[in-house]
Simulated scan of single mutants.
Amino acid sequence: MPTPRTLLAIPVSLAFLCLSTAASQAGPAPATNTLVRLLVTRGRAPAAALLAHAGTGFRRTWSGTDHARPGTDHARTETDLSQAGTDHSQAETHLARAESSYASGRTEYTQAGTGISRADHFRAGSITKTFIATVVLQLAAEHRLSLSDTVEQHLPGLVRGAGNDGRALTLRSLLTHTSGLYDFAAATGGTIPVSPTEAVLIALTHPPADRGRFSYSNTNYVLLGLVVRQVTGHSYATEAERRIIAPLRLTGTSFPGSRTTLPSPHGRAYATDGSDVTDLDPRVAGAAGELVTTLADLNRFYSALLGGALLPPHWLREMLNTRTAHGSYGMGVFPVKLPCGITVWGHNGRISGSYVRTAATVGGRRVLTFRVNTSGIADPGLEPALLAAEFCPRTS
């Protein structure tokens, strides 16, 4: 569950240094293959894998208004991904066509080391935040909540103590990490299972950071998970399942709750000291990092999200607006401007035994996900180099 902007502190020259090993070869695949191997040799990961997709992406034409009408039937908005004025069968038809378009693109897979396969399930850490933010923005599109709502309105009396006050914090501040709330995972080390309320109470024993300043905190998304339950009557996992996972047919993606084992197939996961941490209680992260998924599912999800299949245009623009966080973060996603001038959007995720990174272009036409089966990458220059190798045009 790392701070996402740390990679932006890496000098651009590092990216070019890593790319130089394959600079004489045309096309993205040779450079990408080289860099994935370097994740093992220089990044000190037992194994690494990358899946990239290039195609037309998921696209949906939103008819009528961008917003669901007040009073729109709840069940209907759930089944059609909050697209006002479109019945369930039509929405499914549109999604099937978009999926066919996505599937017709080019997909490239590469791996290094042993113990990882393309179909593996793995823990995605803070990439969970993109799913939670999408659900919250769908609820906003349905007028079931407002981003200007205070935390107090939905969770009365919960956020009080050590100078923290839910009456002064909005849902927007949670989504953008500008609430100032202390990160509970800094106290637990991401290794102690806690309930959502326990996580919040841990955070409330610490004074807040400056409100309005970007300060990455897993506590924000634990609170958003509680807000989703309060608004809908269902857990964030249930809402994400029926709003995102089932419609997009993300068959390898799940919210495990307290289940400590991974679905099959899966490889092994290792802490930085080499110990096996494959079995893990996901309550160490909850709504901030619980997700289990696959490479293909993450590519499909981010392509659909950035292609406009999950949010109306207005709300997708809100998600990608970094003004509140002063350029550091949108809502569940953050931008990276590459050396060639292209900006990609996505998130990273770190949880014990797994580090994952997904990035995609606006429109979702190009997307990649890479992962290692340990908690981090020893050489921080490899991540920006991989993004540049995949998304920046190269000449022979």
Rank of each mutant, 00 (worst) to 15 (best):
residue 364 G to A: 13
residue 366 R to T: 08
residue 240 A to W: 03
residue 68 A to N: 03
residue 368 L to E: 06
residue 230 Q to C: 03
residue 369 T to Y: 14
residue 144 R to S: 02
residue 110 T to M: 12
residue 41 T to N: 10
residue 72 T to R: 14
residue 229 R to V: 00
residue 36 V to G: 14
residue 278 T to Q: 11
residue 344 V to N: 06
residue 191 T to M: 09
residue 64 G to L: 06
residue 102 Y to L: 09
residue 108 E to F: 15
residue 370 F to R: 11
residue 116 I to R: 11
residue 84 A to P: 01
residue 381 G to D: 11
residue 372 V to I: 14
residue 223 L to N: 01
residue 284 V to M: 02
residue 242 R to K: 12
residue 132 I to E: 05
residue 101 S to L: 07
residue 28 P to S: 11
residue 247 P to Q: 10
residue 322 T to Q: 11
residue 7 L to H: 05
residue 41 T to Y: 11
residue 273 D to H: 09
residue 304 A to R: 13
residue 166 G to E: 10
residue 122 F to K: 02
residue 362 V to M: 13
residue 247 P to F: 14
residue 159 V to K: 02
residue 17 L to G: 09
residue 52 A to L: 06
residue 7 L to V: 12
residue 318 E to A: 13
residue 218 N to E: 10
residue 301 F to D: 01
residue 246 A to Q: 14
residue 215 S to Y: 09
residue 22 A to S: 15
residue 67 H to T: 06
residue 12 V to K: 09
residue 317 R to Y: 11
residue 387 L to D: 08
residue 112 A to E: 12
residue 277 V to Y: 06
residue 226 L to A: 01
residue 163 G to Q: 13
residue 312 P to M: 07
residue 199 A to I: 00
residue 73 D to L: 03
residue 346 G to Q: 15
residue 238 T to R: 03
residue 128 T to P: 00
residue 333 V to R: 13
residue 176 T to G: 02
residue 193 P to N: 04
residue 320 L to F: 11
residue 375 S to L: 05
residue 193 P to T: 04
residue 142 E to C: 00
residue 293 T to I: 12
residue 303 S to L: 07
residue 278 T to R: 10
residue 314 H to Q: 04
residue 166 G to L: 08
residue 346 G to K: 13
residue 323 R to D: 15
residue 174 L to D: 04
residue 102 Y to F: 15
residue 100 S to G: 12
residue 49 A to D: 13
residue 219 T to K: 05
residue 8 L to W: 11
residue 241 E to W: 07
residue 392 C to H: 06
residue 48 A to F: 08
residue 111 Q to E: 15
residue 371 R to I: 04
residue 292 V to D: 01
residue 186 A to V: 04
residue 287 A to E: 01
residue 22 A to L: 05
residue 198 E to Q: 12
residue 259 R to D: 14
residue 84 A to I: 03
residue 357 R to S: 15
residue 10 I to K: 03
residue 276 D to V: 08
residue 224 L to G: 01
residue 1 M to P: 00
residue 343 T to W: 13
residue 200 V to D: 02
residue 338 L to S: 09
residue 249 R to F: 02
residue 57 G to P: 02
residue 345 W to L: 14
residue 89 S to H: 13
residue 225 G to Y: 01
residue 254 S to G: 07
residue 338 L to A: 07
residue 133 A to D: 07
residue 157 G to H: 13
residue 152 E to G: 06
residue 228 V to T: 04
residue 343 T to C: 08
residue 113 G to K: 14
residue 241 E to Q: 14
residue 241 E to C: 02
residue 276 D to T: 08
residue 16 F to R: 13
residue 102 Y to D: 03
residue 278 T to I: 08
residue 217 S to N: 05
residue 300 R to N: 09
residue 270 Y to M: 06
residue 285 A to R: 00
residue 272 T to L: 13
residue 81 L to K: 03
residue 308 G to W: 15
residue 386 L to R: 06
residue 189 G to L: 06
residue 136 V to A: 00
residue 306 L to T: 05
residue 276 D to A: 11
residue 342 I to C: 01
residue 241 E to A: 13
residue 199 A to M: 04
residue 224 L to E: 04
residue 28 P to M: 07
residue 248 L to H: 03
residue 133 A to V: 06
residue 388 A to M: 03
residue 200 V to C: 07
residue 320 L to A: 12
residue 184 F to N: 01
residue 21 T to D: 10
